[in-house]
């Protein structure tokens, strides 16, 4: 574990999470959630939890993004005011 790298990654995660709930384009929100999951996987690897990181990368960044895009294709892309 490197504490400074941890701090940088956690700050990036918080920034991405805030961006994901404030952006109005839902496709951008999905892509930000994908980046969130991937950074979370990087943090798990950095904390020596490789199995959890594997699951996070496969499910969070891969399958869940595909599911959310599939759900988005049934509705509109832009969030209403």
């Amino acid at each position: 574990m490197i504490p400074s790298l941890d701090l940088v990654l956690l700050f990036l995660i918080v920034a991405i999470a805030i961006a994901a709930i404030t952006v109005r384009d839902l496709l951008s929100a999905i892509m930000l959630l994908c980046a969130y999951s991937f950074l979370m996987a990087v943090i798990w690897v950095e904390m020596h939890a490789v199995d959890v990181a594997f699951t996070e990368a496969a499910v969070g960044a891969g399958a869940s993004t595909a599911f959310l895009i599939a759900a988005l294709s049934r509705t509109t892309r832009w969030e209403k005011k």
């Binding site: 490789v50 199995d51 990181a53 594997f54 699951t55 496969a58 499910v59 891969g62 399958a63 595909a66």
Partner: peptide
């Protein structure tokens, strides 16, 4: 090692999702 049935199954399913896309 790291990995297992669940992760491998998700990756296998993701390959079908890629085919569909």
């Amino acid at each position: 090692g790291p990995g297992g049935g669940f992760q491998g199954g998700v990756i296998f399913g993701a390959s079908f999702v890629l085919l569909v896309i």
